[in-house]
Simulated scan of single mutants.
Amino acid sequence: MELTNSTNVLEALVSNNRSELGKTFGVGMFVSETDTPEQVKAKCKSFVARFETYIANLNVIINSGDELASEMRKARVKRLYSALDENEKEDIKALLN
């Protein structure tokens, strides 16, 4: 990950150039010309909170061990089962009993 100096970050923030904003902050960060510095800081705090939650959720997945594989199998079975017609579902229920 390339670190950007603070001047470049601030320039990108106020540039009104969505491409530069996207490269620097990711999707969704936009500063209006009418925003006050306090509003911009509040937006940044909101982004930090969202990204902290995002990172925490990614870490749950990374640290899930065998649970991830189990959940993925369950989801696949649910999708396959939901695609069956009622007769096929009844046949499966009969096989399992």
Rank of each mutant, 00 (worst) to 15 (best):
D85V: 02
S46L: 09
L84P: 07
A42V: 06
F25D: 04
K43A: 09
I61P: 01
E11F: 02
K23V: 01
M1R: 08
M72G: 02
G26H: 06
G28K: 00
A69D: 15
K89A: 05
F30L: 10
V27T: 01
I55G: 02
E33N: 11
S70Y: 12
E2N: 11
Y54T: 04
K45Y: 05
V40P: 01
I62K: 08
R79A: 15
Y54L: 13
N57L: 12
T53P: 00
G28Y: 01
E90T: 10
A12T: 01
K93P: 00
E86I: 06
L10S: 04
E2H: 11
N97C: 04
Y54M: 09
E67Q: 14
I55C: 09
K93L: 10
T24H: 01
S64L: 03
V48G: 00
I55S: 08
L95G: 14
L13H: 01
L96P: 04
N57C: 09
E67F: 08
N5A: 02
G22K: 03
N16W: 02
N16G: 10
E67T: 12
K93A: 12
R73L: 14
S15R: 03
I92Q: 09
I55A: 13
K89F: 10
C44M: 15
K74A: 15
G22H: 04
A56Q: 11
Q39D: 09
M1D: 08
E11I: 00
Q39S: 12
D66R: 11
G65L: 03
A69W: 04
F25E: 03
L80Q: 15
Q39Y: 02
R76K: 15
D35T: 03
K41R: 07
L10C: 02
V60R: 10
N97S: 13
S19Q: 10
A42K: 12
I61L: 15
T4H: 02
S64I: 00
N16D: 05
I92R: 07
F51Y: 13
T36Y: 06
L58R: 06
K41N: 04
E2Y: 11
E38N: 06
E33S: 08
A56D: 12
A12C: 03
R50D: 13
F47P: 00
L84G: 09
R18K: 04
G26R: 05
V48N: 05
D66A: 13
E88R: 14
